[in-house]
Amino acid sequence: MRFVFVLLALVFAVSASAVEEKYDFTNDEQAALFTELTKELRCPKCQNQNIADSDAVVAKDLRDKVELLVKEGQSKDQVIDYMIDRYGYFVHYQPPVTPATILLWILPGLIVLGGFAFIILRQKKAAQKASWSERDEQQLQKLITRYKRKESA
């Protein structure tokens, strides 16, 4: 009976232990660069998760490729450029400024300003329509006079 419990405990202990990837580098600079890059590159499959934290297969492949490129002596910018060329701007958390990205930042502000301008112009137009003119005053006096005549008759 003890043997079964020990066997079950060993099975659960082995299955519960997580597999941690170990990357070996020739110096600390390469290890630091690898860590920085894996935290800065986004997993193409995961929703807003970097490749350092992702368990996806593609993230593992990206980590392995980053390791290879760092060991080859490529710089941070070269590795990022390689990943962008292969996976697009989505793979990097800090995409470059392009006309499309500028439009994404400016367009909401322009829409808000346009909305305020529309509201102000609409209020001015309504205020002009609601203003009391001399003609309106004359019409009111005519109506009051007619009403008084009908009342006295």
Rank of each mutant, 00 (worst) to 15 (best):
A13D: 10
Y93G: 14
T35L: 10
D53C: 09
V14Y: 15
K71H: 02
Q138V: 11
V57G: 05
G73M: 09
Q78S: 15
P108H: 00
L33H: 09
K71W: 00
S152K: 10
P108F: 01
D85Q: 08
K150C: 04
A32T: 07
R146K: 11
D81C: 06
S131A: 15
I80M: 13
E151G: 01
D61K: 06
N27A: 03
K60F: 04
K39Q: 14
A9Q: 10
T35Q: 05
R122G: 07
L103T: 09
D85R: 09
I119P: 02
E72H: 03
V14D: 14
H92S: 14
K124H: 05
L113A: 08
I80L: 11
L121W: 00
C43D: 15
A13M: 12
R42N: 15
D24N: 01
R122H: 05
A126T: 07
E36H: 06
I51K: 09
G88P: 00
V14T: 13
Y89S: 09
D85Y: 04
I119C: 01
K129H: 12
Q138F: 08
W132C: 08
P96K: 13
F118M: 09
F34I: 05
Q128V: 10
V79F: 10
G88S: 00
V57H: 03
K142D: 12
E151D: 02
I102N: 04
Q94T: 10
R149Q: 03
D61V: 07
H92I: 08
I144W: 05
K148W: 02
V112H: 02
D136T: 04
K45P: 07
V11Y: 13
